[in-house]
Simulated assay, not measured.
Amino acid sequence: MIRALSPRLRMRFAFGLIALLLIVILAREATARWAQMSQWRGLAETAVSLERNPGLSVERLRQSAQARHIELQVELQDEAWHVRGSVADEKVLLAWLQALQAEGVQPLQWGMEQAGKQLRFDLQFRP
């Protein structure tokens, strides 16, 4: 069928086909770049929202302690928090304190004493 066309018409058909393929390639590249830019924009928005959110709230502190079976009483002071509580195992308390430090908590003072089978602790930190 193509051989029946004149050479001039075949050239137009070839250039048209090449132009169509270039348009498809450019459109695919443009949509891929648009999707990539949308991902970066989403990541940037997430990073900004993380910077605005406070690192630790009283509720998160209580949930974290409750998950480790630590009893807490929290008193909010000016820039520091005063936490009193009890725990059955010192290893659990140490792991909890290390998790808090990984979240950016700065311990200021702390103490611990044995009370029967429980350990009582007194902690002052800056969130």
Score class of each variant (00 low, 15 high):
L9P: 00
L97A: 07
Q124E: 07
V83T: 01
L76R: 13
E59T: 11
V74F: 05
Q118P: 00
A99R: 06
H82N: 04
Q124S: 06
A19F: 08
W40T: 07
G116K: 12
Q118M: 13
H82A: 06
L5P: 00
L20K: 03
R10P: 01
A4Y: 02
M112C: 08
A30Y: 10
S86Q: 13
L17W: 11
A32L: 13
T31H: 06
R28D: 06
A102E: 15
G55H: 08
A102G: 05
G16D: 04
G55D: 06
L50Y: 12
M1V: 11
L108A: 03
A30M: 11
E71M: 10
M11V: 15
Q73G: 05
G85E: 00
L26M: 11
E29Y: 14
L50W: 12
R41V: 07
V58S: 13
A67C: 10
L26S: 10
A99L: 01
Q106Y: 09
G104P: 00
M112A: 10
G55T: 13
Q66E: 11
E79G: 11
L76W: 12
Q114F: 06
R41E: 14
R120I: 03
S38M: 08
R8C: 12
A115L: 11
P127H: 05
L26E: 08
V48E: 15
E79Q: 15
R10M: 04
W110I: 02
D78A: 12
E51H: 12
L20E: 09
V92Y: 03
Q118R: 15
D122F: 02
T46C: 12
R12A: 11
R52C: 07
R62Y: 02
W81K: 03
I23N: 08
A30D: 01
E51P: 00
D78W: 09
A47Q: 14
Q66N: 05
A27R: 06
R52A: 15
L97T: 06
I70H: 00
E90F: 06
Q77P: 00
R120F: 01
G16Q: 03
S6D: 10
V58N: 11
F15G: 14
E51I: 10
E75T: 14
L5T: 05
Q98K: 10
L17A: 13
V92Q: 05
Q118T: 13
L61I: 05
R10G: 02
L123H: 01
L94Y: 09
L26Y: 10
R120M: 02
A99P: 07
A27F: 06
E79H: 11
M1R: 08
L26F: 15
F15E: 15
I18L: 12
F121Y: 02
I18A: 08
E51Q: 15
A67N: 15
A102I: 07
V92D: 08
Q124A: 03
F15N: 14
A4W: 03
R62V: 02
L93T: 01
W96P: 04
I25V: 09
A80V: 07
Q124Y: 05
L22S: 06
L108I: 07
L93P: 01
A65V: 04
W81M: 04
V48S: 13
A14F: 13
E51M: 12
M11E: 15
V92E: 07
L61R: 03
R84V: 02
G16L: 04
S57M: 13
R60A: 12
Q73F: 04
E51S: 14
L100G: 00
L17G: 02
